[in-house]
Simulated assay, not measured.
Amino acid sequence: MIISGSDPYTQASFSFSNRLARLAWTCVELTLFRFSPRPLHRWRAFLLRLFGAKLGSHVHVYPGARIWAPWNLRTESYVGVADNVRIYNIAEVHLGERCVVSQGAFLCTGSHDIDSSNFQLIADSIRLGRHTWICAEVFVGPGVEIADGCVIAARAVVVKSIRDVWTVWAGNPVQYKRDRSKSSGVV
């Protein structure tokens, strides 16, 4: 999907077919998706699936969420994606069951190779585990995996994977704060 060796100042970083698909999605996102009433989660899920998203059941993506490429979005069931979330998914973003992504969070799978002469665009997937909560305005960078049950506190910056399950993290860069107890009934 990413064109290697192109000059980002004068050439596109993506194939023509990718740019055409994103144009079609943007037209739908800015009209049918964005202006749909908040309770119409099934409608927005339908539109995302129409553009290749693989979604579980009971996925609630709010109308103010921005998703760069639905075909690179995978969710399990009972996932919530709030208004003003930005999912810049050049590579796949996978949201585990009962994952919540709160207002203003930014999931970013793309970056640039600062050591290449043309700042080559690069991408790596993001995977959020089951029962995770990405709080308001958190940044999650390329290649990050967050273990099951983690809470990432508001405005944290996560650029390395978190492998410790059921833990709470905060800060820039993100740091471990404490363990999180499982509530009864969570499996």
Rank of each mutant, 00 (worst) to 15 (best):
T132K: 07
F106W: 08
T31D: 11
G80K: 05
K160Q: 15
Q11Y: 11
V59M: 12
A91T: 02
D7H: 00
T109G: 02
S125F: 00
R34G: 06
D148Y: 04
V140E: 12
Y78M: 00
M1H: 10
G185N: 02
L47T: 00
S6W: 11
R130W: 03
Y176M: 13
F33D: 08
V158T: 03
V144N: 03
M1F: 10
L128G: 06
D124Y: 07
Q103F: 09
Q103N: 05
S57D: 06
S116I: 05
A156M: 13
L48W: 11
R163C: 12
R86S: 02
E76G: 02
V101Q: 00
F16A: 15
A91C: 07
P173H: 11
L55A: 04
A154H: 13
T132P: 06
A45R: 07
T10A: 10
S15W: 08
S6A: 09
A153E: 13
N172S: 15
W133H: 04
G5D: 08
G171H: 11
V165F: 11
A45Q: 09
T109V: 06
Q120Y: 09
P39D: 06
R130I: 03
D113A: 14
M1S: 08
E137N: 14
C27F: 14
P63R: 07
L121M: 07
H41L: 11
E97H: 08
L32M: 07
S117P: 10
L47I: 00
I90W: 11
A154G: 14
A105M: 07
S161C: 12
Q103I: 05
S15P: 03
F106N: 09
H94S: 03
D124C: 10
K54V: 00
A24C: 05
Q11L: 12
V85Q: 05
R98C: 06
P70W: 00
V61C: 04
Y9W: 01
I162K: 12
I152S: 13
R155G: 12
V61L: 02
V81P: 02
I90N: 07
Y62I: 03
H131P: 04
A147D: 09
C99P: 10
F14H: 05
